[in-house]
Simulated scan of single mutants.
Amino acid sequence: MASKAQKKAAKTKKRELILDAAIEVLAERGFAHTKIRNIAEAAGVADGTIYLYFKNKDELLIHLFEDVMSRVLAMFQEALGDRTRADEKLKVFLQTQIQMIEKEPSIAKIISVVLRQSSTFVQDYKNPLFSRYLHLIEEILVEGIEQKLFRSDLNPEVLSRAVFGAVDELTLAWLLSSRREDTSLEQSVQVITKLLLSGLAPQAES
């Protein structure tokens, strides 16, 4: 007879299996055209098994987002490491995000495209992990101001959303492009990084 620990491990593994399958199915079919049975088939489980873990497709998508964002935030923290200069942190942050997008386009499509197709996610979900993502950018900007590397007359909270918006637009254009292989996200993010750091630099006194 399986122990409680073994049963818990098996349940966790099956949940991960379902979420991994959901990433690929949702990225390929979109939210509206994905049925629970499509995810169940991809995961190799019965339709009813999905409902043991998630009430409906919207809840599955929210849990999927939370799992993905937890991994993304951990990835950022690891990449930033013990760096102290804010300008270096901002460069690494942007480079890390672009590398993740190129390496895992299905996950990027979930975040940038599919989530917006769920009215429950857009209208009702409080989205605390996205707030943590924005706060991480904001912290880098505040550090840059304190280190006198960035201008002090800019609003870090507003600017953190501008940084996200720039990267999100690049991601959308790349994901939806029919010539993705001809588009270099790395070059694009270098342009944005250079523009950001130039605009953030303290103004020379006249």
Rank of each mutant, 00 (worst) to 15 (best):
Q6E: 14
K8L: 09
A10T: 08
A10Q: 13
T12G: 14
K14C: 03
R15V: 15
L17I: 11
I18K: 12
I18V: 08
A21Y: 15
A22E: 02
I23Q: 14
E24R: 15
E24G: 04
V25H: 00
R29Y: 11
G30Y: 09
H33S: 11
T34M: 07
K35Q: 14
R37T: 14
E41R: 14
E41A: 15
A42R: 15
A42T: 09
G44P: 11
D47E: 15
T49E: 11
Y51G: 11
L52K: 09
K55P: 10
N56A: 08
K57A: 03
D58Q: 07
E59G: 07
E59K: 14
H63Y: 07
H63L: 01
L64S: 00
F65L: 11
E66R: 08
D67Q: 15
D67F: 02
V68C: 00
S70L: 10
R71P: 03
V72W: 14
L73Y: 02
A74L: 14
E78D: 14
L80F: 01
D82Y: 12
R83H: 07
D87H: 15
D87F: 13
L90G: 07
K91E: 06
V92M: 12
F93L: 02
F93H: 05
T96F: 04
Q97W: 13
Q99F: 07
Q99W: 09
Q99D: 11
I101E: 02
I101S: 00
K103F: 01
E104M: 10
P105A: 08
I107K: 03
I110Q: 02
I110N: 00
V113A: 03
V113D: 08
V114D: 05
L115C: 03
R116K: 15
Q117Y: 00
S118R: 06
S118D: 13
Q123N: 14
Y125C: 01
K126Y: 09
F130N: 03
L134H: 06
E138N: 04
E139G: 06
I140H: 06
E143L: 14
G144K: 10
I145M: 13
Q147D: 05
L154A: 12
L154K: 08
N155I: 12
N155A: 13
E157G: 05
L159A: 04
S160C: 06
S160T: 04
S160K: 13
R161N: 07
A162E: 14
V163P: 05
V167R: 00
E169M: 12
L170T: 00
L170V: 00
T171Y: 08
T171R: 02
W174R: 06
S177C: 10
R180Q: 13
T183W: 13
S184T: 06
L185A: 04
V189R: 05
V189K: 04
V191D: 04
K194M: 04
L196K: 02
S198H: 02
Q203C: 09
Q203P: 10
E205K: 15
S206N: 15
S206M: 08
